Computed example of a mutant assay.
Amino acid sequence: MIKKIVASSIIGIVIVVSLAVAFSTSDMEPEPAPESNLTYSMQGVLQPDVMTGGDVIMPTKVSRPGCEETDRCYIPSVITISSGESVTWVNEDSAFHSVTSGFYDEPQTLFDSGHMDPFDSYTLTFDEAGTFDYFCTLHPWMEGQVIVE
């Protein structure tokens, strides 16, 4: 009986030590944060830096009305690029979205990402100068603009 208790105790100690070693992070260095053109304000709200090309983010929960009130349906909602540069839209939401030229009540046929799954991206190169409005076909309150200089 005592041998069984001692054996069980030893096995328990080995398991606890093994788990402690497995979950120890003291020897691991933290991964550096990914570089981004976005910063956080004091309130924790995503704020765009001066954007002159790059990514446009569709953040979480923009499939519900309200993001248009704070101009946060697409971040940034207006992006300025030079002719020949690309913009990549990244759907960070858990809902489907799209990037479609024009406005909800006046769609155009210049570009259309189709329905983007969560965490999909869509990249488009703009070769001509102009102002290009776009929206989400599934969520009409989501609107943005690309200005090509």
Rank of each mutant, 00 (worst) to 15 (best):
I13Q: 13
P107V: 02
A95I: 04
H115E: 15
P140N: 04
I15P: 00
Q47K: 14
Y134F: 13
V6K: 15
G54F: 00
L124A: 03
E92P: 09
S113Y: 00
S24R: 06
C67S: 00
L19T: 14
S8W: 05
T52K: 08
F23A: 01
D27Q: 12
T125H: 05
P34V: 00
C67E: 04
S9L: 12
P107D: 06
K4C: 13
I81M: 02
V14N: 08
E128Y: 00
Y40F: 12
V146H: 06
D93V: 08
N37P: 06
E106Q: 15
G114I: 11
P65Y: 11
Y122N: 05
P30W: 04
V148S: 06
D55Q: 07
F103H: 14
H97V: 07
M51T: 13
F96H: 15
T109G: 10
S101T: 08
V146C: 00
T80F: 03
T109E: 12
T137E: 05
R72I: 01
K61I: 09
V45E: 11
V21C: 11
V90T: 06
Y134E: 01
Q43T: 15
E31A: 15
G44V: 09
V16W: 05
A7T: 14
A33H: 14
Y134P: 02
H97Q: 07
D93N: 05
A7N: 13
C136E: 04
P118N: 01
P32T: 09
E128N: 08
T123D: 01
W89N: 01
M1H: 10
W141I: 14
Y40A: 10
C136T: 10
E92N: 15
C67A: 15
V99M: 02
A33E: 12
E106H: 15
D105C: 02
D127K: 01
E35I: 05
S101Y: 03
V87C: 01
E106V: 09
V78F: 05
I5K: 12
I11T: 11
S101P: 00
